[in-house]
Design a protein around this nucleic acid. Structure first.
Lengths: 117, 117
DNA sequence: TAACTTTATCGTAAAGATACGATAAAGGAA
DNA sequence: TTCCTTTATCGTATCTTTACGATAAAGTTA
C-alpha cells in the first residue's frame, strides 16, 4: 500500500521529492536536454531522437509539464514545448540548498570509513 | 511493460536519473537531512523522527546506500549510517552541470509565453 | 543459556510507473 | 468535405515502488 502519506512529511521535502521524481527517468532527462539544444521547441523531433514510442514521449512530456519544468502549447496541428527556465532555476536553487545543508551539517568525515554496509 | 531499456539511453542520463530517483521520495530526503543534522550517524533515531515503520525506514536506507549517497556499518547490535559527502558533492556537480546545460541552451524566452498546455 | 535490543530481510498487498498499440482530437491541405 | 499530419488520450499489460507485520540475524546483558 504505497499510498505515501504525503501530508505526514514536510512540504519542503515533498516538493523536492516531486521535482526529483521528474528527473528520475532517463527519457525525461534526455527530453530536457533535447529541448535545451534546439531553441525551437519541437515535439515530433523528440520522438525521433528517443528510443521510445510516440505515446510514451507524450506521457513523459506531460509529467514534465505537470512538474512545471516544461511549457507546452498547440501550434496548429503540432505542438510546441520548451523549457521553463524560471522553474529550472528554482529547482537548481532548491537542490543546491539541500546539498549545502547536507554538506555543512555533520563535520565528522564518515561513520567509520568502511563504505557500503 | 516498464522494463525501461536502460541501455538505449545515454549512460550520462541513466546515471543522473538513478540519483534523482534516490531523492524522489520525501522520506529519503528527510533521512538525508536527519543524517546531516546529527553528526552522530544514527538509525533508530530516524525511525522516531519519520512517520513510517522501521522496516520501511530500513528499506529507504538501503536504497540510499545503493545509490551511494549514504554509508552504513553495523556497530554492535545497532547500525550506523552517515552521509557520503563525496558522493553528494559529485551529485551536486552532476546536477548543476545539467542545469547549466539547460539554462544556457536555448536563448528564446519561451515557446509562446502561454504557460501550461 | 535465556531474555532483550536493534536492524535487516521476507512475504505480501496495493498503488504507481512505464510502455505501446489503437484511437480520438484538431488543424491543415487538396 | 475528405484525407493527411500531428499529438494527446485510452485501454491494457507488466514491472516497480511503497508499506507494514512478522521473522530472522546478531549483539548485549543478566
Amino acid at each position: 500500500m504505497p499510498i505515501t502519506r504525503t501530508d505526514k512529511f514536510k512540504p519542503k521535502d515533498v516538493r523536492l521529492s516531486l521535482l526529483a521524481k521528474a528527473l528520475s527517468h532517463p527519457a525525461r532527462v534526455a527530453i530536457l536536454r533535447t529541448l535545451a539544444k534546439r531553441n525551437a521547441c519541437v515535439c515530433g523531433e523528440i520522438v525521433e531522437v528517443l528510443p521510445i514510442a510516440q505515446a510514451t514521449v507524450s506521457q513523459h512530456l506531460k509529467e514534465l509539464n505537470n512538474a512545471g519544468l516544461v511549457d507546452g502549447t498547440m501550434e496548429g496541428p503540432s505542438s510546441c514545448y520548451c523549457l521553463n527556465k524560471d522553474a529550472i532555476g528554482r529547482l537548481a536553487a532548491d537542490l543546491n540548498g539541500l546539498f549545502d545543508e547536507l554538506r555543512s551539517g555533520c563535520t565528522t568525515t564518515s561513520c567509520s570509513t568502511k563504505g557500503k554496509g
